[in-house]
């Protein structure tokens, strides 16, 4: 049953992707990309990747769509016809496709438990998570502790994107001419529905933040959800009102603060005699130390992701329209 549903989803994704490439209307392409991300998220869920599904839904279908739409409102909605070098592109793509298809012929089949990926490192994680870290969600254990250094890097990738957007768009050249953004304040139904939904989105965001050890979720998903809730508020009430609630200095503090918190935990564990990001030394009981470390770094992740996503959104939204 699952297999059939999976094939159905994959086929839908294929159709959506082809439509995305073919359409000349960028607005349509963006909407289709949102749908594509939701289908992909559903597919991840079928493949037992609950955390990834949640992230793909929040980031791919939510945040990415909002960013693309705000960028479209500043640029153009229609793609002009004409491609150059189409044959060369087709040739390159064809060669790459054939190479990859060739590779899949020797690949282990889907779900094969004897595949090399399931033999070596992965069973060790499953075996050792209960004793070494003792959180139910193995993905969280690997993400936050066993491969915590990757996640530190990931937070800094987000941080980099944040300061990049602020560097490029952060200064407002036409502040006087800028008329306050009204949002959908005069549309009763949107406003009513929006205001009812927002508290639940925020609540769910906080739940995902602090429940990430037990179920799917963690700092990234929570940050994306909280940011989505506030962006929804900004869309309804206007960006200026939203900026009154979360002023720019606070956003800057969040962008830098979360990253500093994560790195700070690493440095603290160094100062307390462990290696970088070795949470075991943070408390007299190693497992309790791991819990504390994971809680703190997930908080850091959540703060930076929320701050960066909101900064990016506000940078796009307060740009003068052409």
């Amino acid at each position: 049953m699952n297999a059939i549903f999976g094939i159905f989803l994959l086929t839908l994704m294929l159709i959506t992707a082809i439509a995305v490439v073919r359409t000349r209307n960028l607005f349509v392409a963006t909407t289709l990309m949102g749908i594509f991300s939701l289908l992909l998220a559903a597919n991840f869920f079928l493949l037992d990747a609950a955390d990834v599904a949640l992230t793909e839904a929040a980031v791919g279908a939510g945040i990415s769509t909002v960013l693309l739409l705000s960028a479209l409102s500043l640029t153009a909605e229609q793609e002009k016809p004409g491609h150059r070098g189409r044959l060369l592109a087709l040739a390159v793509v064809l060669v790459t496709t054939l190479a990859l298809l060739h590779a899949t012929l020797d690949s282990p089949r889907l779900g094969d438990i004897d595949a090399p990926v399931h033999q070596h490192v992965a069973p060790w994680y499953i075996e050792n998570t209960p004793t070494a870290i003792d959180v139910p969600n193995i993905v969280t254990a690997v993400l936050a502790s066993f491969r915590g250094y990757d996640t530190l890097g990931e937070v800094f990738v987000v941080f980099t994107a944040g300061i990049g957007v602020l560097f490029l768009l952060g200064h407002y050249p036409h502040k006087q001419a800028h008329k306050p953004h009204e949002g959908l304040r005069h549309y009763l139904i949107q406003r009513l529905v929006g205001r009812t939904v927002i508290p639940f989105i925020l609540l769910f965001g906080f739940y995902v933040q602090f429940h990430g050890d037990f179920g799917p979720g963690g700092g990234f998903q929570a940050g994306a959800l909280v940011a989505a809730g506030i962006i929804l508020y900004a869309l309804i009430e206007g960006t200026d009102r939203a900026l009154n609630i979360i002023p720019k200095w606070l956003l800057n503090g969040m962008v830098a603060g979360g990253a500093l918190l994560y790195g700070g935990v690493g440095i603290a564990s160094m100062l307390m005699g462990g290696n970088f990001l070795d949470y075991s030394v943070l408390s007299s009981d190693p497992v309790a130390g791991q819990h504390l470390g994971i809680l703190l770094i997930e908080l850091g992740v959540g703060i930076t992701v929320t701050g960066v996503l909101l900064s990016i959104f506000f940078a796009f939204a307060s740009r003068k329209h052409f």
Binding site: A49, G60, A122, V142, G164, V165
Partner: peptide
């Protein structure tokens, strides 16, 4: 769990690149 962890990272890298 490992590919899932890697892809969580990759998704975030992807959205960062798109935003920039």
């Amino acid at each position: 769990p490992l590919p899932q962890v890697l892809i969580l990272t990759a998704i975030v890298v992807g959205i960062s690149t798109t935003a920039l």
